[in-house]
Computed example of a mutant assay.
Amino acid sequence: MFTCQLTHRADLPLSYPPEIEKCTVRDTDSRSLRGKRGRVPSAPPPDWILQRRRQVGDRIRDARLHANLTQEKLAELAGMDRQTINRIEQAHASPMLDNLFRIADALGVPLADLVR
Rank of each mutant, 00 (worst) to 15 (best):
R116N: 13
Q51F: 13
M96C: 09
M80K: 05
R116A: 13
D29M: 14
F101T: 03
D113L: 10
N86H: 10
L97Y: 11
E72P: 02
N99E: 02
T7W: 10
R61Y: 02
G57I: 07
R116D: 13
G38F: 00
W48M: 09
A106D: 03
G35I: 06
R61L: 01
C23H: 05
R39T: 14
Y16F: 14
E72S: 13
I85M: 03
E76N: 07
Q55P: 00
R34L: 15
T28A: 14
S30H: 14
Q51C: 11
D11P: 02
L14E: 12
P13L: 00
R82A: 10
C23Q: 06
C4A: 15
D62M: 08
H92N: 15
P18Y: 06
P46Y: 01
I85S: 01
I85A: 00
R61V: 04
I85D: 02
H8F: 13
D27N: 13
W48V: 11
C4H: 06
P13C: 02
A10D: 15
V40N: 06
Q90A: 15
I20N: 03
L33H: 14
F2E: 15
R37M: 13
G79E: 08
S32F: 11
I103M: 02
R59G: 06
R116W: 07
Q51N: 11
P45W: 06
S32A: 15
R116Q: 12
G35T: 08
G57N: 08
A104I: 08
P110A: 06
D62A: 15
D98Y: 13
E19Y: 06
Q55I: 06
I60K: 00
A104T: 05
V56C: 00
L6G: 01
D62R: 12
S15I: 08
G57F: 07
L100K: 02
L114C: 08
R52H: 13
